[in-house]
Design a protein around this nucleic acid. Structure first.
Length: 267
DNA sequence: ATGACCTCCCGTGGAGGA
């Protein structure tokens, strides 16, 4: 089973690229972020014609998340992250698919630091961590996938010293990510590629892609029983080189039908 | 230190992104 996360940076402006990638990669499940479209403008028909059922949580101009499932309808289990009823930004959607809970998230950028946007990011992260602990307690297979807007370690940044005071790399945010992972989650890409420089985002500026000046921002966190099924974790870097492409590349994992190693929980 | 590039919007520049 192949599951992908992809920050499309505008689902309508990116529709041709999205459909081309869906056809080429044929993922079973896709978490999309940055739809930049209200619910009524989500391109459901084109996605359905490509063979995917979808649920979405849109917003005019900004944010927006969706979950796609090949030849299936994702069963909506949650829209919006709990913990703040006044939060109007569309950054979380969750579905039950094939016995798994799949959360699709778009964590706030948080720049500039310091300021209210950074405070919102830290608060959102705290809400996510609180909610993630509840999910783990359910003892069902869970995947939290999306654009976390954090480079977890120096290995995840082309030039760490330049990013020290950026909201994507501030120590508070890296610590928040570590606190979340330490609940018992597995960072899928890092688990299978320890010590390797892997990026999922390259700025449109300054020929960043050509220079491989990238960041690793898009992550899969797996609950222990899902982590035991993990066999592959890759970035579809070639998609970032396409015409009219997003600044993020699709990132994906492959899960075996059954556990291929003992889960961390069982040692 | 700044801006470079790209997206969206009732837009023709500004805001937000990372």
């Amino acid at each position: 089973m192949k599951i992908a996360t992809y920050n499309v940076n505008g689902v309508n402006g990116r529709l041709d690229v999205l459909l081309r990638w869906l056809e080429q990669a044929s993922p079973d499940v896709v978490c999309l972020q940055e739809l930049k479209a209200p619910d009524a403008k989500f391109p459901a028909k084109a996605i359905e014609a490509a063979g995917y059922g979808a649920i979405w949580h849109g917003q005019k101009s900004w944010n927006g998340v969706a979950i796609l499932a090949k030849a299936a309808e994702p069963l909506l289990t949650r829209k919006g992250l709990p913990g703040d009823p006044d939060d109007a930004q569309s950054r979380y959607i969750e579905a039950a698919i094939e016995g798994m809970v799949i959360g699709c998230l778009y964590l706030p950028n948080g720049n500039p630091y310091p300021g209210p946007k950074f405070d919102y990011k830290v608060a959102w992260f705290k809400r996510l961590t609180t909610y993630a602990a509840e999910l783990l307690k359910l003892n069902v297979p869970v995947i939290l996938a999306g654009d976390y807007n954090v480079m977890p370690t120096e290995l995840d940044v082309y030039k760490p010293e330049r990013w020290i005071n950026d909201a994507l790399f501030r120590v508070e945010v890296r610590e928040a990510y570590k606190e979340l992972v330490d609940q018992g989650w597995t960072d899928a890409v890092r688990e299978l590629h320890p010590g390797e420089r892997i990026y999922t985002f390259w700025d449109y500026f300054r020929n960043a892609f050509g220079r491989d000046a990238g960041l690793r921002l898009d992550h899969f966190l797996l609950s222990p029983d899902v982590a035991a099924r993990l066999v592959k974790a890759e970035v579809a870097k070639d998609v970032r080189g396409w015409e009219h492409t997003s600044d993020h590349a699709p990132t994906w994992i492959e899960l075996a039908e059954k556990a291929v190693k003992s889960s961390k929980r069982n040692g």
